[in-house]
Every structure is written in C-alpha cells, then in structure tokens.
C-alpha cells in the first residue's frame, strides 16, 4: 500500500468487535472457529443474543473461569463453554435442523476466499487435499439466513482474498452477504462488492490495490 497516509489495520479482536456491533438483540447466531468465536466476547450480556453451536448447544454464555469448567459442556471448536439461563441442549440432527432449516438469523464464518458473486471457500486449501475436514461449514453456509465472513483482507503474502472467482474448493455458492476484513466492511450485491466502511486513512484506490474483485462505493 502507498503509505502516503499511515493506516493501521484492525487486529483480530477489533475485527470481532466490529462484527459484534452489527448484531441486534434477539438474533440466533452461530459463530465459526477462529476470529468468529471472538465475536461473542464483544456482545454485552444485556444485549440478549443467543449463540448456537453445531454440537447442539443453544444459549452459550461467557467462557468459564479455569476452576469452573464443566467437562460435559463444549462447543463445536471443542472449547469448554458455559450455558446462559434459558440455554438448551438438542441432539445433532435437531441442531442441524436449526442450521439447515433456516432458523439461524446469522452465521459468522472465517474464509480463505470470498468471490464477488457471494461464493465462499473456507474448508480446503487445494483440490489435491484428499481428506480435508468439512465439519458443519457447508450446512451453515447454505442454511443460515445470513452469512457474514470475517477474515484478513489479504493472505500473509499479500494475495487478495476478495476475488472474482474462488480458486480454492468451494464451500457454498452465492451465500455471503457481507464481509468484514481488517481494512473494510463490504456488502456483496448483485453488482459485486460495495464498500460500506474503510479504516481511517485508507483510500478506495489503496483498498482496490489489495483486492482482486472490482470494488465500488454505495450508489
């Protein structure tokens, strides 16, 4: 990036906080592994958002203190969690009925790539990877009412992740409606990526230089 104006990309927690700011009270939300999991830490308890996990847990609360871990209560990332008052347990088939039946208001996922048509790739890094782990990614991507992706804007080597067409194996087609990166917030629209917000000091030109897909500003 041309450093005419110094810009400071958001860190993982700041990205998670930015996503959290857009989640209203009353939504049922599933959070993927990685940065998405951090989103819950930035939703205040008094804003009642009900977090779901694939292994049948509804109403996940704040992470337990080390000496208060319940060994029988984990999330899909195999981390120990707590249940809020009002929480519920269902079995796996019902948990995925929640996911696949369109009952979740939102799923926040990480990704390797998102394309301008809303395709996403987040489960395998190459066609040659014959035994990647898919878990619930494909179910969540097609089943939730909204899919938001939170990820770094580029790879560590500076390769764009917001692309015209995904090069990694697809998770789902045309499902992503919004992307939060360390540089910007973008909506996926029929006209491609629309930039809603950029970090202070960043220009559209500088953002475009780090993005393969064509960017535009709201009409």
């Amino acid at each position: 990036m041309d450093q005419a104006t110094p810009v400071r990309p958001l860190g993982r927690n700041e990205m998670a906080a930015r996503v959290a700011a857009d989640i209203p009270e009353g939504w049922y939300v599933n959070l993927g592994i990685g940065i998405p999991t951090l989103v819950a830490d930035h939703v205040p308890l008094e804003r009642e958002v009900i977090f779901h996990s694939e292994n049948g847990v509804l109403g996940i609360g704040p992470a337990p203190a080390r000496d208060a871990i319940n060994p029988w209560l984990i999330n899909a990332g195999k981390q120990h969690v707590t249940l809020r008052k009002g929480g519920a347990i269902v079995h796996h088939a019902d948990s995925f009925a929640i996911i696949r039946g369109g009952h979740l208001d939102l799923c926040v996922l990480g990704a390797f790539e998102v394309a301008e048509n809303g395709d996403m790739a987040n489960w395998a890094t190459s066609e040659n990877d014959t035994a990647p782990a898919v878990g619930g990614a494909m179910d969540l991507a097609v089943g939730a009412r909204r899919v938001w992706v939170v990820m770094e804007h580029t790879t560590k080597d500076g390769k764009p992740r917001l692309v015209r067409r995904c090069s990694y194996p697809l998770t789902a087609l045309g499902v992503v409606s919004r992307v939060y990166t360390n540089l910007a917030v973008l909506d996926v629209t029929p006209a491609g990526f629309v930039v809603r917000e950029m970090i202070p000091g960043l220009t559209l030109e500088a953002l475009q230089a780090r993005t393969e897909a064509k960017l535009s500003l709201p009409a």
Binding site: F96, T130, A131
Partner: peptide
Amino acid sequence: LFRAGKIELELVPQGTLAE
C-alpha cells in the same frame, strides 16, 4: 492409514451426516 491407502474415507458435511 489414509496416506498409505489402507483406509477409505467418505467425507460428509456434518448436517448431512446427521440427517
């Protein structure tokens, strides 16, 4: 085992597996 070709894998999305 998988690398040695000694086990077959059928990879299924988790919800499809449950359903």
